[in-house]
Nucleic acid binder design. Structure first.
Lengths: 207, 207
DNA sequence: GAGCGATTGAAATGGAAATTTGAATCGCCT
DNA sequence: AGGCGATTCAAATTTCCATTTCAATCGCTC
């Protein structure tokens, strides 16, 4: 069945904004892909900015499920870390067509706009908070907030790298294809790598 | 002393392109900051694109020193890893005014252009190759290329994260100031974290 | 099927920004 | 000083794109 013009514009906008960012996108291209007239953008959304806001709102809404948190299984933080990474990685490094939000965020980071604040508060901060509690449970109980923060960011860094670094990675390692199997293997590697480092920090503090 | 117009345009262009990217930058602003006439851009560089290429060329040239490599001290790969991270981190997360190339690369990654290829070949690949040899020396000798690559990327990920993630990080952790002392502490953390993970991978293979 | 608000379409309008132009000025050499 | 190529300047010109306009069409109610 055929979606109405309004929704077709939102879908097309998601792809074009993801590819080119807000500035680089043209409503001509969006309208062409949506098989709609350019005037429809202004009619339905009041302008390019209105469409952008609407696209972002829908994208954020579409992936608002909470991440695995320590509360799910307080006695096994190592398993929770694996679960968290397995949950996050496909979300940040899946194909752009599947998760345009990631590409849009990348554009936002290069040219911050007010909507970046919205993305941070609604998406990034809850994820970071959940991960921090898992990491805290894996570190010695007297670890300072600063130490916990640095370890948390070391884990997150490995996950988002495959997203932020994609344009560079596919040039340096063109043979690596980020399909589902590769993402699963990566998720396993990142969890093992991080747990090894965290365990060692824990052991060292015990001596 | 006063630089000539050509060089003033390149310097001003570096800042403006770093802040706004190629698309977002206007030659009006560049000319204004360089205290030059907009026609000078076309006269000296043939256009905005020509100036961009020239800025990028100078920036790449300015930081072409080779990274610490395993050949410097083949018997102590752990120290080499520390040296490498201590070398790379200030280069990727220093202030934008000091290293505009980082900001420009971020813009490039969000909207890849032909010059990204140049950045990758001249800067990224040599650094990645050097780090890979260090990591290989820290892993069991029978580690596959794939395993070495993943561990290498886990190390790099932690370094570039503070650059790519800066706009988000300063919103989530506004209290963290990336001054020289913090960069040094981070460099130490990343090296310790990574060495712990690598050692553990090595020990596990030995059993 | 007539009327009417909601939507769509093609063609203007307007503004911002890159590029071009041609005259004015500078630096230097004789 | 005078000439000449290199450079700078202000003022067009052109291009690209968002937005507006207004006429045409659709979908629904009476």
């Amino acid at each position: 069945m055929q979606l109405d013009t309004r929704q077709r514009l939102i879908n097309a906008g998601a792809h074009v904004f993801a590819e080119r960012g807000f500035q680089g996108a043209t409503i001509q291209e969006i309208a062409r892909r949506a098989e709609a007239n350019i005037a429809a953008v202004n009619y339905h959304f009041g302008g390019k900015a209105g469409l952008y806001a609407e696209v972002l709102g829908q994208q954020i809404e579409a992936r608002r499920e909470p991440p695995p948190s320590l509360a799910d299984d307080p006695d096994n933080p190592a398993a929770q870390l694996r679960a968290f990474i397995g949950w996050l990685l496909p979300r940040v490094c899946g194909p752009a067509t599947q998760f345009p939000l990631g590409q849009m965020q990348l554009h936002e980071m290069a040219a911050a706009s007010p909507v970046l604040d919205k993305v941070v508060e609604l998406l990034v901060r809850p994820q970071l908070t959940a991960l921090r509690e898992i990491v805290r449970a894996l570190l010695p109980s007297n670890a300072s907030d600063e130490v916990v923060r640095r370890h948390t960011l070391s884990v997150i860094a490995q996950c988002v790298f495959y997203h932020h670094g994609a344009p560079v990675l596919e040039r340096v390692f063109p043979e690596v294809l980020l399909d589902d199997a590769e993402v699963a293997a990566l998720s396993d590697h990142i969890a093992t790598f991080s747990l090894a480092a965290l365990r060692r920090a824990h052991d060292r503090a015990a001596t």
